[in-house]
């Protein structure tokens, strides 16, 4: 009870993102402002008028069609087999050898617009638990960003970090650790 009231206060004023999901121009502008103040990148695409959007979209749509063709129709329905990508110690940078796997997931998601995805970020057992939670989340967000810039909308992606709490492999050696620094892509 106490909490519900509280959460309302906390979330007050955070209505913009939902608007963003509906495609309002105002929301974009607002987010752009936030983005730059946060030290984040400016979005690649900015809209300055009512028909700016459609130009961009048209381009995107064309790109999308091309992607689908490239994948061949058989791949569209199939879930990619590999659903885990791995990371180096104490980083959340997507490795080059992960891009192929991620691209397959992007294609799948773009072919199945109703499909949502959960990205589970994990860390190995070394270091502190809370830092590892943050690291797991950053890994999840790295994959999320990779998906987003290729056309998967943010509201279809959820990132959860389990830090070092759910190791894939039990063990206290490099082999186990390298298997535990991962993001699992779950549908």
């Amino acid at each position: 009870m106490e909490f519900k009231k509280y959460s309302k206060t906390l979330f007050f004023g955070a209505t913009l993102a939902v608007l963003a999901g509906c495609g309002g121009n105002d929301a974009v502008t607002q987010d752009d402002v936030n983005a730059s103040t946060d030290g984040q990148v400016q979005p690649v695409i900015t809209s300055d008028g009512s028909n700016g959007d459609s130009a961009v979209n048209g381009e995107q749509l064309g790109q999308e069609a091309q992607n689908l063709q490239d994948q061949a129709s058989s791949a569209i329905a199939a879930l990619p087999e590999v659903e885990t990508v791995y990371f180096d110690f104490d980083t959340s940078v997507i490795r080059d050898d992960s891009r192929e796997v991620l691209d397959l997931h992007v294609a799948y998601l773009n072919a199945n617009p109703a499909q949502n995805v959960v990205l589970e970020g994990h860390a190995d057992e070394r270091g502190t638990r809370e830092y590892n939670n943050a690291l797991g989340e950053r890994r999840g967000n790295a994959v999320k960003n990779y998906f987003m810039v290729q056309g998967v909308s943010a509201d279809r992606i959820e990132v959860i970090s389990y830090g070092e709490e759910k190791p894939a492999v039990i063990g206290h050696n490099n082999a186990a650790w390298s298997k535990n620094r991962r993001v699992e892509i779950k549908y």
Binding site: D38, Q40, E130, N133
Partner: peptide, 28 residues
Amino acid sequence: DGNPELYVIDLNTYKMKRLTKHYAIDTE
């Protein structure tokens, strides 16, 4: 807000204040 940041929550008023703002991890 996108990155792990430090906040202080007042337990009487439930007002929140953000203390850090950086694209890296801030925690513990």
